[in-house]
């Protein structure tokens, strides 16, 4: 049995929600004050995910680097590994927002997109 306290970020109330469970199953969720909070706590317990943003080296661009992000959230524990790959990327023109510069990073299903132009 695992127990994890999660600070809810859905609204400014910042409820402390306690989730108990084992492996991939949840036994109980306590401390939430709304449905959205419960949903957040459950997904944060089972598979916490984060959007990742960074910079990559840019050739012939107005600044030495350009900003990028993942097209969808990636597993929290894969952020550092993703960063290792992103650090080595280098792009050239055309600079268009949303242009995919790397597909399916680390099999997360997330692409790396340019966020500036």
């Amino acid at each position: 049995m695992n127990e994890k306290t999660i600070t809810c970020i859905i609204c400014p109330s910042s409820c402390h929600i306690t989730v108990r469970g084992s492996g991939n199953s949840i036994e109980s969720i306590e401390g939430h004050t709304c449905k959205r909070g419960m949903k957040y706590a459950s997904s944060e317990y089972l598979h916490p995910e984060r959007n990742l943003t960074a910079i990559v080296k840019a050739k012939d661009y107005k600044t030495p680097v350009i900003s990028v992000r993942t097209s969808r959230p990636v597993p929290k524990d894969k952020q550092i590994a993703c960063m290792r790959i992103i650090r080595e990327l280098e792009v050239g023109p055309p600079y268009e927002i949303g242009r995919v510069i790397l597909k399916n990073i680390l099999d997360t299903g997330a692409d790396i997109l340019l966020t500036n132009e």
Partner: peptide, 10 residues
């Protein structure tokens, strides 16, 4: 929708 700063500005 959720955007980064440069995307919002763009």
């Amino acid at each position: 929708e959720e955007l980064s700063g440069p995307e919002y500005a763009a």
